[in-house]
């Protein structure tokens, strides 16, 4: 029955088209209207870069940007070191309590952000930890650590252990083997994981919102409070577009690295 199966095939195709439209339309709309030369954002008044120009002169925005970057970089660094060691541990060692260890490392992935955020907030309150960069960074590390672990573990699984034996056979001690053979070979995985962690940290809103102190804001928190205060404005569209572009770039780079053989 060629007609029926080809009809079915077009149903599938239309469904796919509809979903991709559904996924990308809002993003494209946002992007397009960030170039709209109008304060009343829905009607198109012509192409303009004025909102991007305004962003460049907005010193608060630059400061938030810098905060986001600092937090992102520090959190990524810590999460990458800890996540990589967790990956090595889980791939290479069997030990009592391995399951519990794995649960503790991985659980933050499936925990709703809000629970993670308020448990940390509560913890900071009870131990009287002053809120600031450190409290945000800690949260971001807990959140991104499992992602690094997953990506590095995947890389380690494709790793030929005999290469390490070969290095030992050629006179390399454990540290030299790790530095000259293991590390260079899993480096794409580590870098891929780090990029993912950085993206997640830059994008995070909920954790930051509940663990930040007064005065230390990040870019997503700024976007949130701007849309809260002024509603939908072209400036917010413009920052959002930039942030979106940025994370798309990082994610593509990360995926590319994870595939690298």
């Amino acid at each position: 029955m060629p007609t029926r199966s080809s009809a079915l095939r077009s149903v599938f195709r239309i469904n796919a088209l509809f979903i991709y439209f559904f996924l990308y339309a809002p993003i494209l709309v946002l992007l397009i209207f960030s170039f709209n030369d109008s304060r009343y954002t829905v009607s198109w008044q012509g192409f303009s870069l004025r909102w991007y120009g305004a962003l460049f002169q907005n010193s608060i925005l630059w400061e938030r940007c810098l905060n986001s970057l600092i937090i992102g970089l520090v959190a990524t660094l810590i999460a990458t070191v800890l996540g990589t060691s967790a990956a090595l541990l889980l791939e290479r060692h069997r030990f009592p309590g391995r399951g519990a260890y794995m649960a503790a490392v991985y659980l933050p992935i499936i925990m709703p952000d809000i629970i993670l955020a308020i448990s940390l907030s509560l913890f900071y309150g009870l131990v009287h930890l002053p809120r600031g960069f450190a409290t945000i960074i800690i949260g971001h590390v807990v959140l991104t650590l499992p992602f690094v672990t997953i990506v590095v573990r995947a890389r380690l699984r494709g790793f030929d252990r005999q290469l390490e034996e070969a290095a030992a056979d050629l006179g390399a001690n454990e540290w030299a083997t790790f530095r000259r053979v293991t590390l260079p070979l899993i480096a794409p995985g580590i870098l891929g994981g780090a990029l993912l962690a950085f993206t997640l940290s830059l994008d995070d809103f909920v954790l930051t919102f509940f663990t930040k102190g007064v005065g230390v804001d990040t870019l997503p928190v700024l976007i949130y409070s701007m849309q809260r205060k002024f509603g939908v404005t072209p400036e917010v569209n413009a920052i959002s577009s930039l942030l979106l572009l940025n994370s798309t770039l990082f994610v593509l780079l990360s995926l590319r690295l994870q595939k690298h053989r």
Binding site: Y24, T41, F205, P220, V236, N237, S240, L243, L244, L252
Partner: peptide, 24 residues
């Protein structure tokens, strides 16, 4: 290509993507 197109937005900023819907 289609898989990539599916995965990429899902890694990008959730707040911004939600905001985009609010705009619509």
């Amino acid at each position: 290509v289609l898989l990539l197109l599916l995965v990429v937005p899902f890694w990008t900023n959730f707040l911004v993507r939600t905001y985009a819907w609010k705009f619509i």
